[in-house]
């Protein structure tokens, strides 16, 4: 069965929602979302730590969407805006869940999946070494961090990258990434 966006978005929007967005990922959208996240996660000492982690993960997740979202599948270009992405931030227990989603061309999946699996298989010391290696040896593109974003997220949260690729049509999949952040 092919990917049904509305069903996916409904499912994402369960629980105690702080931010829920579907549409163009623009600089302005990023600024507004960061502002909401910062003001909605409280001021208690435990929450300050959590807020910092959430803020960091939000910056990297949103900028990943901003830089890497593919053009939309032809048949839905009318239905969704260009540069389309999904962001949902929700409270779950004492932590926060951040879900991002975007369409991705089929031929890019393998590279991304290999990268996600590699990061997920690494321990803290390996991640630190990989981060420092990329930082010091790899030339960054204008697009940004040379792939440091995902490594940074895992280093700061200590969780795995929970992802799915759902088939939309021959050329496109929908990539969804869940990140849980706890104190």
């Amino acid at each position: 069965m092919s990917f049904n966006f509305d069903a996916y978005y409904r499912k994402m929007n369960t629980g105690d929602i702080i931010v829920s967005y579907k549409g163009s990922i623009t600089t302005e959208m990023i600024n507004n979302t960061l502002e909401i996240v910062e003001s909605r996660i409280g001021e208690s000492p435990e929450d300050v730590r959590l807020r910092k982690k959430v803020y960091n993960v939000m910056v990297e997740s949103l900028q990943n969407l901003y830089h890497h979202t593919d053009e939309l599948p032809e048949d839905i270009r009318g239905e969704f805006e260009g540069h389309f992405g999904v962001v949902v931030v929700a409270r779950e227990g004492s932590g926060i869940r951040i879900t991002t989603g975007n369409f991705i061309k089929s031929d890019k999946i393998k590279r991304l999946k290999d990268k996600l699996d590699k990061i997920n298989s690494m321990g803290p010391d390996e991640l630190k070494d990989m981060y420092k290696f990329i930082l010091n040896h790899q030339k960054f593109s204008d697009k940004g961090g040379g792939g440091l974003g995902l490594i940074d997220i895992v280093r700061k949260t200590g969780t795995r990258l929970n992802y799915t690729f759902q088939n939309y049509n021959n050329d496109y999949y929908f990539f969804s990434l869940d990140i849980k952040i706890t104190n």
């Binding site: 803020y55 910056v59 990297e60 930082l135 010091n136 960054f140 961090g145 440091l148």
Partner: peptide, 12 residues
């Protein structure tokens, strides 16, 4: 207070 990974290379 915060810096993103895109800044991290520039800081280096």
């Amino acid at each position: 207070e915060y810096f993103n990974t895109s800044s991290s290379k520039c800081i280096l």
